[in-house]
Each structure stands twice: as C-alpha cells, then as structure tokens.
Write a protein that binds this DNA or RNA. Structure first.
Length: 231
DNA sequence: TCATTAACTTCAG
DNA sequence: CTGAAGTTAATGA
C-alpha cells in the first residue's frame, strides 16, 4: 500500500508536470527557490498545488510552545499543498525549501480541478494520496508519543523500505537516501547524533548497511519483524 | 540506560 | 575555503 503511494506519486508527476501537458505549456513555469526560502507561510491562502521538479521541501507547523513540528520532507517527483483541493482556505502548515536549488511547478487549484474533472483516474489518485498522507502523519504522531527513538527510526526505515517499487522481489532492499541524518532526526523527533549512532548500531548487528547515498536492508524479512525496543 | 549536548572531523559545493 | 554532514564522548534525566 505504501508502495502504491510511491507509484502514484510518480504517475501524478507525469500527468501533472505542465511539461507533459501540452495545453498548459504557455502558462507553464518553474519557480526556483534557494535554501531557506519559503514557498508559502502558515495562514497564507491556499491557491496552489506544487510539484517538486528538483530539490527538497520541508512542510511544518509551529506547536503551541513555538517549536517546529515537521510534517514531511518531500523531494523530486512529489507533490504538496494538496489540501487546497479539499477546500482548505488557508495553509495549516508552511513550506520551505531546504536545498540550495529547489525547482517547483505550481498548479492553480482551478487547473487541478479541471484535470480532475476530465480524468477520473487522476482525481481518484489525488484523493487516495491525500488519504494516505493523513494516515501516514497520524501514524507518525502516534510513534512520536509512544515509542522510543530507536523504534521510531526502525519504523521510519521500514516505511521507506515499503515505498521502494520492487522491495518484495529481493531479500536485500536498497533505499536511495534523499534524507540527511538531520532530516531523519527532524522527522522522527530526535537529533542528528542519535540517528547516526542508531544507524551504526543497526549496522553493527548486521541489519543494515549504509552510506550517505543509500541504506541497504540486508534482509527485509528480518527487518520487518524488528520491534525496535532493545533487549 | 538511553538520548542529548557539545566538540570534533570529514565532506561537498 | 566555508558551512553542512557525520562522528564521538561526556553528561543528564
């Protein structure tokens, strides 16, 4: 199911990216953002949906005590701002570029509605994506509240594993790393150093191998059974 | 005991 | 050469 989500994202991008859609070619434009640039702020009007053509984007809100709560970090090929399609008037989170050169295709809500009307498959895929995102976030929040960091990291890696298109087929699963240790730490509510040492721990006991570019799960079935709580 | 802080080294642009 | 990423060890809850 997570794998589906991945596929749909890719397909969405192909359907959506105005590059591929002839009749939007004229009005089509990419927008570039530097590191730290905001794409939209909290409480801004929700007028667009964005496709990531290049780079990395962080979606987050502020908690009551003023801290950042990171909802997601998205990369090339993914879409965000989709809540605008469900009638969201103002953004509940903010979006910020966290890579040096982030390039986005903005699509207006009206354009999106038009596409959804004409292409039911597409409309369905969007709704599914929204549903899955909400569930994913809920699950992550639950983990944050009730589990220790190690469990959170393992669950996080499991999720990435299941998003790999062909992960069922082989014993080993290679996860290309789009996240830095800091990104991971942000997402699981921990620190860079903790992520590194936990990854090393998993490496030492032979569950994974990793470098900056990828995490290799040496045996997916063993990994799937990992509960995380140490013993 | 586990995770964070801080200080350090390595890496990439 | 600089800032970010990654590592390590000391310290706190």
């Amino acid at each position: 199911m997570s794998a589906l989500w991945y596929f749909e994202n890719v397909n969405l991008y192909h359907i959506l990216c105005p590059h591929k859609v002839n009749r939007y070619q004229k009005e089509h434009q990419f927008k570039a953002y530097k590191k730290g640039d905001f794409i939209y702020f909290k409480e801004a009007y929700s007028r667009h949906i964005y496709l990531i053509s290049e780079g990395k984007v962080k979606l987050a809100t502020y908690t009551e005590d003023g801290k950042e709560m990171i909802k997601a970090i998205l990369t090339k090929g993914e879409i965000f701002g989709e809540m605008a399609l469900l009638g969201e008037q103002k953004r509940k989170d903010f979006a910020q570029s966290i890579s040096a050169n982030t390039i986005l295709c903005p699509m207006s809500v009206e354009q999106m509605y038009e596409l959804m009307r004409e292409n039911q498959q597409f409309g369905l895929a969007i709704h599914k994506l929204i549903g899955l995102r909400i569930r994913k976030l809920e699950r992550r929040l639950e983990l944050l509240f009730f589990k220790d960091v190690k469990t959170r990291l393992i669950e996080f890696i499991k999720e990435l594993m299941e998003e790999q298109p062909d992960f069922q087929k082989t014993e080993k699963v290679i996860i290309p790393m789009v996240y830095t240790h800091k990104d991971i730490a942000d997402l699981i509510g921990s620190r860079r150093a903790t992520v590194t040492s936990l990854l090393n721990e998993l490496k030492e006991v032979g569950y994974i191998d990793y470098s900056r570019k990828k995490i290799t799960i040496l045996n997916k079935d063993v990994f799937k059974e990992l509960a995380g709580v140490s013993g």
